[in-house]
Amino acid sequence: MTDANGRREARTGEQVREYLLAEINAALRRPGMFGGEIALRIYFDAMAFADDREQAWSEERGSLQARRAFLSTGTRGAFESLWGAGTDDMAASVYAEFAHRHGWLHLDRILSRDEYDELIGVNKAWCESDRTLGQTLGMFGPPSVYCGGTNPYFPKTLVYAAGHSRDPLFCFHFWNELLDSRTDQTALYNEPMLLAVRGEGSDFTDSFAFTPAGTNRRRGA
């Protein structure tokens, strides 16, 4: 837009805010395409400034460090220390928690109270056996946020959320990896395998319920 003298008008604060919100939500879903965790930090710094929540964001970073959910190598490093692998989608789910609490996270699906309460009741039991991505989607339905691409050869994280910002997110972390191209099998699993479900916990490690596959990776980390 231009003013009466033909000069281009600057964007309004609300326009800048809406742009940042859209970019944050796109980056949370496809973090690898946006530059990974570093890009998320930049977007969240900018959004906190635009929303006058710099103090809250600073306190969140301090809390993540205190809980060992953020190491010198970032949030990805916290996952890597846990089971030997840290990916952008795993890190994005941690940033999504702050976004959810502050009304920044756009949910593709909002769980009803009954659906959310059921998830609370069965998520640990679900992790007592190994589960695939397809089995999990069949059990719990489409996620509120899908972090990562749809390629079955790569890891991804499914985030489930209720409508209230005070309700913790439940994050289902799936693992897969490409094998040597000279072998007949392209990837370790035919579809991503669930390693753990992450919910509430005062310490980062305590917030996970591990599947057998996740426990085996921890032993080998």
Score class of each variant (00 low, 15 high):
residue 190 N to D: 15
residue 114 D to P: 00
residue 30 R to I: 03
residue 58 S to L: 07
residue 196 A to T: 11
residue 170 F to L: 15
residue 10 A to W: 04
residue 103 G to E: 11
residue 191 E to D: 12
residue 78 A to P: 06
residue 71 L to E: 14
residue 84 G to F: 15
residue 120 I to T: 10
residue 67 R to D: 14
residue 159 V to E: 03
residue 193 M to Y: 06
residue 145 V to H: 06
residue 193 M to P: 01
residue 184 D to N: 09
residue 209 A to I: 02
residue 46 A to I: 01
residue 52 D to Q: 12
residue 67 R to V: 03
residue 205 T to W: 05
residue 107 L to G: 04
residue 100 H to C: 06
residue 154 F to W: 13
residue 108 D to P: 02
residue 73 T to C: 01
residue 212 P to D: 10
residue 8 R to K: 14
residue 191 E to S: 10
residue 210 F to G: 04
residue 154 F to K: 04
residue 16 V to H: 12
residue 196 A to H: 11
residue 70 F to L: 10
residue 85 A to H: 15
residue 52 D to W: 10
residue 161 A to S: 11
residue 71 L to G: 04
residue 137 L to H: 14
residue 10 A to T: 04
residue 188 L to D: 02
residue 144 S to T: 09
residue 96 A to P: 05
residue 127 C to A: 09
residue 59 E to W: 05
residue 168 P to I: 03
residue 2 T to H: 13
residue 186 T to H: 07
residue 162 A to S: 12
residue 54 E to D: 04
residue 7 R to E: 06
residue 205 T to S: 13
residue 122 V to W: 00
residue 138 G to L: 08
residue 71 L to H: 12
residue 117 D to H: 13
residue 175 W to N: 11
residue 156 K to I: 02
residue 33 M to W: 13
residue 87 T to A: 06
residue 39 A to Y: 10
residue 7 R to Y: 04
residue 158 L to D: 07
residue 20 L to A: 07
residue 25 N to Y: 15
residue 70 F to T: 00
residue 10 A to H: 07
residue 76 R to T: 01
residue 186 T to L: 14
residue 80 E to C: 03
residue 97 E to F: 03
residue 165 S to H: 15
residue 130 D to G: 06
residue 47 M to D: 02
residue 51 D to T: 14
residue 63 S to A: 12
residue 60 E to M: 02
residue 178 L to A: 15
residue 172 F to Q: 08
residue 118 E to N: 06
residue 27 A to S: 09
residue 129 S to C: 07
residue 58 S to K: 12
residue 77 G to W: 13
residue 131 R to H: 13
residue 119 L to T: 08
residue 168 P to E: 05
residue 166 R to P: 00
residue 111 L to D: 14
residue 5 N to L: 14
